[in-house]
């Protein structure tokens, strides 16, 4: 091979558009997909759901609350992709807008319960006196079935998405709290924490630098699990009429409204249900993959 042809190949390679990944980068991306297929599958599905929720108004949807009694209970067709419900509302539009409620509730609850539970768990894991009281209170909360507690909390307040988030967060917090406390109790016995104490590190710094980073992996898995569980709880609450107000479409209340007709018009229940299932599955896959990837001992060079 002559020098000129080598040179030519080199020039051709540099003029490739820069947005395309170079072969090396492509190899790394494929390697990541290969090592963590669950993260990729779960992440892509979650991303699609988030995009659907954000872009709902531009995805050929109609007003999800506009009534058209003359066009009620239409089968899925080119005009009504998922059909219409018993009030003539477009199920496709309602399911897409419903994704907003479900995802908002799921992520918000994961964040609220995660932060609240982590804070309480860290404090009670490090302070013996507070521990006994806090954990008995958490036991008390956990002894009430989650859905019943959420219903009771909703009954105390007005139906709104915000109140749904608060109610589900309260029921999920004890689980995070228990997890974090357990991890803290085992970590504080670790020699590296004792070495840090012996090195004169102050307790807040120990919590921040030694304890918290090592609770993140289990916390992440728990947060995704809570996110999935919160979406189901929200749908359950909406389904029994104790959650999102009927004026806001959510997967739960779409299914609730379709329930009466489900033997003759199953698609009204089917479409929101399939969206809910896929989202919950995706979030759980993501959490599972993250757990493996977040562990530096298992992580190979990215």
């Amino acid at each position: 091979m002559s020098d000129t042809s080598l040179h030519g190949a080199y020039v051709a390679a540099t003029v490739l558009p820069e947005i395309l990944p170079t072969p090396k980068e492509r190899g790394r991306i494929m390697g990541f997909v290969h090592r963590h297929p669950t993260i990729v599958i779960g992440g892509v599905l979650v991303l699609i759901m988030v995009l659907i929720a954000i872009l709902a108004p531009w995805l050929f949807t109609k007003d999800p609350t506009s009534l058209a009694p003359s066009k009620r209970t239409r089968e899925p067709s080119a005009l009504y992709w998922f059909g219409t419900d018993m009030l003539g509302r477009d199920v496709y539009s309602r399911v897409l807008y419903g994704a907003r409620v479900s995802l908002t509730v799921g992520f918000s609850v994961a964040c609220c319960a995660g932060i609240l539970g982590t804070t309480i768990g860290l404090i009670s894991g490090f302070t013996r006196r507070i521990d006994a009281i806090v954990m008995r209170a958490m036991d008390g909360l956990m002894s009430i079935p989650q859905i019943l507690l959420a219903i009771a909390l909703m009954a105390l307040t007005r139906a709104s998405v915000q109140n749904v988030i608060i109610a589900i967060s309260i029921t999920e917090t004890p689980r995070v709290c228990r997890l974090v406390r357990g991890v803290v109790l085992s970590l504080r016995e670790q020699p590296y924490v004792e070495a840090a104490i012996a090195s004169g590190t102050k307790v807040p710094v120990i919590i921040w630098k030694h304890i918290l980073p090592n609770t993140l992996a289990p916390l992440m898995v728990q947060a995704t699990f809570i996110c999935a569980s919160a979406m189901i709880t929200e749908a359950t609450l909406s389904f029994i009429g104790a959650g999102t107000p009927p004026i806001i479409p959510s997967w739960g209340n779409i299914m609730a409204e379709g329930r009466a007709l489900w033997q003759v018009k199953p698609y009204i229940v089917f479409f929101p249900a399939i969206f809910l299932s896929i989202t919950v599955l995706a979030v759980n896959l993501l959490g599972d993959g993250l757990r493996d990837a977040l562990d530096p001992r298992l992580a190979k060079r990215l």
Partner: peptide
């Protein structure tokens, strides 16, 4: 400490 594995914080 005895255990060279648990005596160093794996994330630092």
């Amino acid at each position: 400490f005895q255990d060279p594995f648990s005596s160093l914080n794996p994330r630092m």
